[in-house]
């Protein structure tokens, strides 16, 4: 745990120093803001619907942020040779992965908090409950953390950042498109694949509408854990290659 804390602190410092992280935050918040404005001003609508639309676009923003923040985490260090410092220190691979993941997660959290003014505007001007906002944001954090873990896995596998970025995007798209793809299949594969989908079942039908289901939380935690575990195994495997 001590090493995780040390790595987390360094990574957070790197985010603060890195223009890349701030550019990502700026661009994504700008896009989120523009989309929100176009939805909020698109005629007379129920405020709950406007909030749903906000979470719909923000889930894409959270996934994009997750990918952009994570695909460089290990591949960049491998490319810059700095990974050797971690690899030859008495630090376990799991501590490296968790430390880096938590730092990216904290940054993602900050980014999401900075978007909070938009649902608050809806609340001030309309009729929505605070709980609906909290549930939606919990969903954004969870879907973002799953995207982070997927990006981390691609980063642990790839030799360079470009490959990691492409692989992470492909994996994320695959996870999001499982639901429409599964529609074309029959039982018993269809329900299994649909339940594994990253967005449609667990976010769109749950968190986006302000519905809190334990199974959705468990699903995102499980996806995050699974890909972080794969990242640890990928790092371990690299030592044998």
């Amino acid at each position: 745990m001590r090493a995780t804390r040390i790595i987390l602190r360094r990574e957070l410092g790197a985010y603060l120093r890195s223009p890349f992280a701030w550019v990502i935050a700026f661009v994504l918040l700008l896009i989120d803001g523009i989309l929100f404005q176009s939805q909020a001003l698109a005629g007379e609508q129920l405020s709950a619907i406007v909030l749903e639309k906000f979470f719909w676009t923000s889930s894409g923003i959270a996934m994009a942020a997750g990918l952009l923040l994570s695909f460089r985490l290990i591949s960049e260090e491998r490319q810059n040779h700095s990974l050797v410092l971690l690899n030859t220190s008495p630090v376990r691979d799991a501590e490296i992965v968790v430390g880096k993941f938590l730092a990216a997660f904290v940054f993602l959290g900050v980014l999401l908090v900075l978007s909070l003014y938009m649902p608050l505007l809806i609340k001030v001007n309309g009729k929505i409950s605070g709980a609906q906002i909290i549930v939606g944001y919990l969903g954004l954090l969870l879907i973002g953390s799953a995207a982070l873990a997927i990006g981390m896995f691609a980063s642990a596998l790839a030799k360079n950042q470009l490959v990691a970025g492409v692989a992470a995007t492909a994996m994320l798209f695959l996870m999001v498109l499982l639901f429409p793809f599964a529609k074309k299949l029959g039982d018993p594969v269809r329900p299994i694949l649909q339940d594994l989908d990253l967005w449609w079942v667990h976010f769109q039908s749950g968190f986006m509408r302000g519905v809190l289901n334990l199974k959705d939380i468990v699903y995102y935690v499980a996806v995050t854990y699974f890909f972080l575990l794969l990242s640890v195994k990928a790092l371990e495997a690299k030592r044998w290659q």
């Binding site: 360094r10 120093r17 890195s18 810059n80 040779h81 700095s82 990974l83 050797v84 410092l85 030859t88």
Partner: peptide
Amino acid sequence: GFLPENPPLYQDM
């Protein structure tokens, strides 16, 4: 203590 061929440096630090 290990000094590899390419020093393992974090350039931003």
